[in-house]
């Protein structure tokens, strides 16, 4: 079914839904509770996201970090219900500004996407249509969601280009005429087009040069302040999260293994995985030593192990780790760790 046909079909249903809608009380602007998402494959279900919870306050930035394949993108796509065909939210709630998105219809979601929550897709700057003017591609969601003509939408695009620091002269450039940095700024402009409250950036600076990365992160910080935006920054680079986020969530094999303020995470890292991950990044302000790697691979997500998912790679594991699945423990207010050793205060 085409997305348009889908919207039409759900339109009727949405009308009847409407009466039932009332504001749900929840923490923050976005309150993700025990979100669980699976993908169906021939070999079984990929348990990509398991009971993931976090809260984003208005104006706050939250970092989502972890190795490739740990479920960062899946979590983001679940929030917006943009999962591919074979993916589905199995359980959990996505509470956003008084509504439960996990229970919302496709039509209901179409009112949320772009206008209230927008996303800068992973690799989007390289996925732009190469033969269409970049400005026009950015105008599309504005036309669709604000019901504007192309001409009106282009006026808005020009304003947005100003906002993100790309010369208005470049609106008619096709993507390859823009540098990587400019393309990523254009993607940020697109995310801001309908004045959302929350923006999700999925690896928005990966593949950019350090100086351009610094410019983009600086731009995001500025926009957050000016527009009082909430931001979820997905990155496999922990240092980026440390520098730009208020709070952080470390994911491993689809689960949250540690969460808290970035100070909790970096200055009082408690989960053995978080500790190893932090050590894996060279820190030029410390003594140089050979950066260590984390031996082994994350577990298979079709048949996840019964015990702790990190156990086979863990350098401090104890006998019970192989069989007992650890719960998240609050080790200090707001600082959660999924490790049996955390209970004993390591």
């Amino acid at each position: 079914m085409s997305p348009k046909a889908k919207t039409k079909a759900s339109e009727k249903k949405a009308k009847t839904d409407k009466k039932a809608v009332e504001r749900i009380e929840h923490a923050g602007l976005l309150d993700v509770r025990e979100l669980t998402t699976h993908f169906k494959l021939g070999a079984g279900d990929v348990k990509a996201v398991t009971k993931v919870s976090f809260v984003v306050e208005p104006g706050e930035s939250l970092g989502l970090a972890g190795e490739s394949g740990c479920g960062k993108t899946t979590a983001a796509l679940s929030i917006l219900k943009l999962l591919p065909e074979n993916g589905r939210i199995v359980s959990g709630d996505v509470l956003f500004d008084g509504r439960n998105l996990a229970k919302r219809t496709e039509y209901g979601m179409s009112k949320i996407r772009w206008k209230e929550i927008s996303i800068i897709f992973q690799g989007a700057m390289n996925a732009l249509n190469p033969v269409q003017e970049t400005g026009k591609q950015i105008a599309e969601p504005i036309q669709l969601h604000e019901g504007l003509s192309e001409k009106q939408a282009m006026v808005r695009v020009r304003e947005l280009y100003d906002l993100v620091g790309v010369s208005q002269k470049r609106v008619m450039d096709v993507p390859h005429q823009l540098s990587g940095g400019m393309r990523q700024r254009a993607m940020i402009a697109m995310a801001l087009a309908c004045n959302p409250k929350l923006v999700i950036g999925d690896e928005p600076t990966t593949a950019l040069d350090v100086m351009v990365q610094a410019q983009i992160l600086d731009l995001i910080a500025r926009l957050r302040k000016e527009l009082h935006l909430s931001f979820i920054l997905i990155s496999h680079d922990l240092s980026v999260m440390a520098e730009t986020c208020d709070k952080g969530v470390i994911m491993y094999a689809g689960e949250v293994v540690e969460s808290g303020t970035t100070t909790n995470i970096f200055n009082n890292a408690t989960h053995p995985y978080t500790r190893l991950l932090i050590k894996a990044f060279p820190n030029i302000h410390e003594k140089r030593e050979m950066v260590s790697s984390i031996k082994g691979d994350p577990p298979n997500l079709i048949n996840p192990p019964a015990g702790c998912g990190f156990c086979p790679r863990c350098d401090v594991r104890i006998a019970s780790c192989a069989t007992e699945h650890p719960e998240l423990i609050e080790v200090e207010p707001g600082h959660f760790v999924r490790c049996v050793l955390a209970r004993q205060g390591v």
Partner: peptide, 17 residues
């Protein structure tokens, strides 16, 4: 100056060109 550092307390000045 712009190399990100895994320490949120290290508030260093960035020279962003």
């Amino acid at each position: 100056s712009v190399i990100p550092v895994p320490d949120p307390l290290a508030k260093r000045e960035h020279v962003i060109l």
